[in-house]
Design a binder for these strands. Structure first.
Lengths: 207, 207
DNA sequence: TACAATATTGTCCTTTGGGGCAACGCGACG
DNA sequence: CGTCGCGTTGCCCCAAAGGACAATATTGTA
């Protein structure tokens, strides 16, 4: 699904605007998907590489409301607001909520293209980071419940003896689990295992 | 120096405004320091717990220019813009540059107080985080050059043997350094040492 | 010059970690 | 009913780490 290249999702209730901006972006080599409302965007929730060009005032979901929904549902798609009736207060709200940029209509072609270009770069960065974390999650998910317990204790510096005591089992058993953990995670040293746990936030949580 | 409580630094070229806002904040129990220009603020660079209330248009340094300077010089002081002649573009610039909030004159007392209150909370959060990192830096700084080298290799999962080889010394020596490292860092396990290194970004850098 | 910090190395012993080999009990699923 | 995944455990052995005790060499500085 990612073979299609970056897609710019345009959400605006003004049909002529969608067409105009869509042509501009397509002329620059981007794939474009247009939506008449926030509800429509949510219905065909975009995935993959891209960004969102969002109007502020629309019938139904407002831009800010849609932004809030998207923060959960499509966290890697940067949002660029592009609106005609903005004000400072709204702008601040949008930026605080994580908008990547905020442009005013009419915006110059170069401004829009520049914003889209950078937003797509950000999307790529987010996805790479997401992929790294996802890969770690996948590895950790393959641990059995018991192995997972042992893992948490290992990366907190507990000795096999202590782990055995805390889990009410024998040291030999802990060794077996420990072996499985390291193998399943592909960690060639304790340092690697700790590092993985750190990136997954397993060290603060259970503190 | 931190016994004095949070200080709100007001930077505005309008004397009557400084006085008015200053009184409002003092009435709410904050310490206040007022500055007529960005240059004046930089000259008596504030330290400690606080935040900055910043006008946009001023003779000399503009608000955005001052913000850029402060990002380096006082990174824990959140900046709240409070200006009468703002526009969306400027707002976006300020927010992208890390401003905490952006209010328009005239702003209601409650809006100003609320923004200041939250900015001070953010300052506190930043300072706590900063203190943690600083504490780690201090510990690591106490390592001798050789110990530091050993530390970097330890937290990357290298065996004493390998470290000895890489540093062209004996395994016994590495053991000695390793012992010193763990003691100086107060790490009771390898996991703790790795965790400290991770927080200091020592694992990506030398990767 | 003498002291302090740093880097170095040795021997000896104990504790821990890691792995091989083998085995048992249990619950799930076909 | 048999297989499989999971958790369990024992014995034995080797490698690695940690600590005790001791010592040497270099260098910068009081």
């Amino acid at each position: 699904m990612n073979l299609v290249g970056p897609t710019v999702h345009i959400v605006d209730d003004d049909q002529s605007f969608r067409t105009a901006v869509g042509r501009l972006l397509e002329a620059s080599g981007y794939r474009v998907a247009a939506y008449e409302s926030g509800e429509e965007l949510l219905a065909r929730l975009p995935s993959g590489h891209g960004c969102i060009l969002l109007d502020l005032q629309m019938p139904g979901l407002s831009g800010l409301e849609l932004q809030a929904r998207l923060a959960d549902m499509a966290p890697f798609l940067p949002i660029v607001f592009l609106t005609g009736r903005g004000n400072i207060s709204i702008t601040v709200q949008a930026m605080k909520a994580g908008a990547y940029d905020f442009l005013e209509k009419p915006a110059s072609s170069t401004a829009v293209l520049e914003a889209v270009k950078r937003a797509l770069q950000l999307c790529e960065t987010r996805r790479l980071e997401q992929d790294r974390v996802q890969a770690l999650h996948t590895l950790v998910a393959r641990l059995t419940p018991r192995e997972s317990q042992v893992f948490r204790l290992i990366v907190r510096g507990k000795r096999n003896k202590q782990i055995a005591y805390e889990l009410s089992t024998s040291e030999r058993t802990v060794k077996a689990h420990r072996h499985n953990v390291m193998e399943k995670l592909g960690a060639r040293s304790l340092a690697e295992a700790v590092s993985m746990a750190e990136r997954l936030g397993l060290l603060e949580k259970t503190a």
